[in-house]
Nucleic acid binder design. Structure first.
Lengths: 197, 197
DNA sequence: GTCTATAAATGGATAGAC
DNA sequence: GTCTATCCATTTATAGAC
């Protein structure tokens, strides 16, 4: 933050600006509707600068995806950290995800809704990523302690988080009348009724 | 069906072949990774024939989307038709959607997972489409009759169908070990516990 | 490390014969 | 109604100056 003027960026701050701009454009129009030239212009940098920091458009998207997935992973982990038990942890995760969806809709749009495999062919499906694994683990631990009734792990995980994820989806599609957070209690209540012992 | 030979198509059958081929390629590689030339070649027809039947690539995608959404609408409606009450109707819808996901994965991939607004800018979000409206109505009717406890309609709808939709997602990502249908009873059981009175 | 200018390829769409 | 051949715009990526 040594230079607050929007004049001209260099080094890491330029790299960051490119990533931020790419996220905005990707989430607004989609990856394929955004050209490198669009990013170049919106970020106020040159083509050469972009290709100096990233091997290409795909590598740029990969760097962005990794950064955002890591951010989401941190959010889920820290939400869990202070809580004991499946209900408390599940609620904390959903609450944090709801917050993220409102505060950083572009991030959630890009991480949750975009079809990454269309432009990152090597990428595994999002359901096998760390945050989602963590969420499933919360449910499985709850089953071990008897807090959650015994059932198929996949079904339990989708029952606990499926409704919340759909609500986030609706928020991103601007289908909800009220603020997303205001639905939290009812969403968690439903989810818990579904799987509690 | 007058001509069974794969020799050369014309008229409506050519149009159908183009739509089928486009669905296969769109769902496999995505809309933007599929060129008109790819469709032309895979369908064994000429560029001119495609542009005779469709105003362009986007119009082709729109025709396909409309046809598939209509198919899904029929599926949801007929599944409901024979059933009485929210539980029976909800179960029938989920069962039918599970079947569709297994029998026509490409259809569900394209209808449920693709980000249509990236290539069909005028299209409303999928959550406002007929099948989804129908699903919400089932829940709201259940609330009217007292079968479902009184709660926020959006929350009730996502609680009833959110888990099932996530399971379909997992199936399409090939994350499940067992056949999707085998999870049906447990999925419906969870969903119903979430919202029943 | 950042810039401008340009190369090379691809893609959507059209023209006109049959 | 279907075909082949081709146009033109766009896009990713590179070259080379500063």
């Amino acid at each position: 933050m040594t230079d607050t003027a929007p004049s001209r960026l260099r080094g890491d701050s330029l790299r960051e600006m490119v990533l931020e701009t790419a996220l905005r454009l990707f989430s607004e129009r989609g990856y394929f509707n955004t050209s490198v030239h669009d990013i170049r212009r919106a970020a106020g940098v040159s083509t050469g600068a972009i290709y100096h920091h990233f091997a290409g458009k795909e590598a740029l998207a990969k760097a962005l995806y990794d950064a955002l997935l890591s951010r989401m992973e941190t959010a889920v982990d820290t939400a869990c950290a202070g809580q004991q038990g499946c209900l408390a942890q599940g609620r904390a995760i959903i609450a944090r995800l709801f917050e993220l969806t409102v505060e950083q809709p572009r991030t959630m749009q890009f991480v949750l809704l975009a079809q990454h495999r269309e432009f990152l062919p090597q990428e595994p499906p999002i359901c096998s990523s760390q945050p989602f694994q963590r969420m499933r683990k919360v449910v499985e631990d709850g089953m071990s302690t008897g807090e959650v009734r015994s059932m198929e792990p996949w079904v339990a995980a989708t029952a606990l988080f499926g409704g919340a994820l759909r609500m986030m989806n609706l928020q991103l599609d601007q289908a909800l009348d009220r603020p997303l957070i205001s639905y939290l209690d009812e969403v968690v209540d439903c989810a818990w009724r579904a799987i509690r012992a």
